[in-house]
Each structure stands twice: as structure tokens, then as C-alpha cells.
Simulated assay, not measured.
Amino acid sequence: MSAIFCHFNFNVLDLKRSVEFYDKALGLREARRVEGDGFTLVYLTDGVTPFELELTYLFDRKERYDLGEDEFHLAMHVKDYEAAHALHEKMGCICFENTEMGLYFIEDPDGYWIEILPET
């Protein structure tokens, strides 16, 4: 048996704000949307790989999600690390930086961390 990655899910409180954040910060675009009874799923794509980020919006959810100890994250490569860093610094979303390792993390509107790495 073998499995292939498909998507990863983040639950969000403000779908419009999250979609705008991921577009501006990482260039992720909406691939498709699923409307259900009490929820909306938006699948974001980088336009290069088949992997998607699923944003789940539950209509009745008002309180912030418990993200545990913030020990999990999504990682992304960027072509122009310096330009990405400058953009994220301007957006005020850099939450941790490790210059020795050459990486940093940004935080989305719901508190999820995304690791930013230079393209290899």
C-alpha cells in the first residue's frame, strides 16, 4: 500500500480574511469551494503542486481554535527568500525567526504557523 499527500486542513474563523491573507502572503489561490449545511470549505493551491490547503469555515464557530502547543506547522519554499521576508515583515506576520538555520515562521490570522524556507 502507498499513499499520496492530498491536502492539509486549517479551521478558520473569518474565511474572507484568511483567503486574502494566504493570497497576499503566499500567493495561494482558491482552486475550488464546497458549500455545505453550516460550513464552507475552500481549497487553496500554489498552482504548481497537487497539494492543497483546505480552509474550513464553520458558520456557528465564534471562539478561537485551540492549537495545542503550536508544535505543528505547514512549511513552504519561496523562490525569493529576501523578498518574501520583506513582504512578511511589512505585513507584521513574522512570529519567529532562526537566522542560523535560514528560516522563519509567519502566523496566519487564526494563529497557525507557516515555515518559510528558501527554495532548494
Rank of each mutant, 00 (worst) to 15 (best):
M1I: 03
M1R: 05
M1S: 12
A3C: 07
I4K: 09
H7L: 11
N9V: 15
F10V: 09
F10I: 11
N11S: 15
L13A: 09
D14G: 05
L15Y: 13
K16N: 12
V19F: 02
V19C: 10
E20L: 09
E20A: 14
E20C: 05
E20K: 02
F21H: 01
F21T: 03
Y22I: 04
Y22V: 06
D23Y: 10
D23T: 11
K24G: 01
K24L: 09
A25R: 00
L26S: 00
L26V: 06
L28S: 03
R29H: 11
E30M: 08
E30P: 07
R32P: 00
V34W: 03
E35K: 15
E35P: 07
D37Q: 12
D37F: 10
G38L: 08
F39D: 07
V42N: 00
Y43A: 05
Y43P: 05
Y43W: 04
L44Q: 08
D46F: 01
D46G: 02
G47V: 07
G47Q: 06
T49E: 14
T49S: 14
P50Q: 03
P50L: 03
F51I: 13
E52K: 09
E54M: 10
L55Q: 05
L55I: 11
T56Y: 00
Y57G: 08
F59W: 06
D60E: 15
D60M: 07
E63Y: 02
R64S: 12
R64A: 13
Y65T: 15
Y65K: 08
L67T: 09
L67V: 11
G68V: 08
G68P: 07
E69I: 03
E69K: 09
E69L: 10
D70H: 13
H73D: 15
L74D: 14
L74Q: 15
L74W: 14
A75N: 15
M76F: 13
H77M: 14
D80G: 12
D80Y: 07
D80Q: 05
Y81I: 14
E82K: 13
E82T: 10
A83L: 11
A83Q: 14
A84C: 13
A84R: 06
H85G: 11
H85K: 15
H85W: 07
A86M: 11
A86G: 11
A86E: 15
L87Q: 10
L87E: 10
L87A: 14
H88Y: 08
H88M: 12
E89M: 10
E89Q: 12
E89F: 05
M91P: 06
G92M: 04
G92W: 02
G92A: 05
G92H: 05
G92F: 02
C93Q: 01
C93K: 01
I94H: 00
C95E: 04
C95R: 01
C95T: 08
F96W: 08
F96N: 07
E97H: 01
E97N: 05
T99S: 09
T99Q: 08
T99E: 10
E100K: 09
E100C: 05
E100F: 05
M101D: 13
G102I: 04
G102Q: 04
I106Q: 00
E107T: 08
D110N: 11
D110T: 06
Y112G: 02
W113F: 11
I114S: 01
I114C: 01
I116D: 09
P118C: 05
T120L: 09
T120K: 13
